[in-house]
Amino acid sequence: MSEDSIISLQNVNKWFGEFHVLKDVDLEVKKKERIVVCGPSGSGKSTMIRCINRLEEHQEGTIIVDGIELTGNLKNIDSVRKEVGMVFQQFNLFPHLSVKENITLAPIWVKKMPKAEAEELAMQQLEIVKIPEQADKYPGQLSGGQQQRVAIARSLAMKPNIMLFDEPTSALDPEMIKEVLDVMIDLAEGGMTMIVVTHEMGFAKTVADRMVFMDEGRIVEEAVPDKFFNNPESDRTKLFLSQILNH
């Protein structure tokens, strides 16, 4: 593990029952680095980033996040989850809580922040994702793009050092994708360490420091975007890129 890496996966293996989802995955992510992970469905991309905040358990290998090794130790898991924010494909907002309550929930209960302070924090986060006027609505009243931005604000309210994005725009209508990507670009420019699983190659070209291509549970190729898109090494990558770029 190199000195300045904030996330380190070494030789990670994982099975779902008999099915081998992650095969000897090695990945080092430096502070403030933006990684975009792509690959065909079922290639283990989501599983890999879900292992980073222990939504999935890996069975072999080591995962170290911000100096904390992920083991069965529940305390470690809690502290890692405070460091790592996650945004899901299906937003997963809490439908019984207002937008503001969605965001203040964790600061109030996990960080024991006073309510007034948490609400102020929530409004700041909503400014960042550009929907402060929706604070008192319920998730069901918002469009998909707005919901996803609230979800980003909810994660940011815990002041994470790392943000994981699991196909954040895949469930959105085309005209809403941009508003979410814009927020993510702002976040990247602000220096957030990010791992993004996405098929938005335009976004990848703009923000990624490094591209990671996965297939059948393995990392097949890692390269800077320029090399990845123009001169990929593996045939599998070439095939994948030709399929998603030329349709």
């Binding site: 989850r81 924010g85 899901f88 997963n92 209960w109």
Partner: peptide, 18 residues
């Protein structure tokens, strides 16, 4: 209750009881 609700709650650091 969809699995995503549990995952979202866990990912923002809530404990089991919270």
């Amino acid at each position: 209750i969809p699995q995503g609700q549990y995952e979202a709650a866990r990912s923002i650091g809530l404990s089991y009881w919270q």
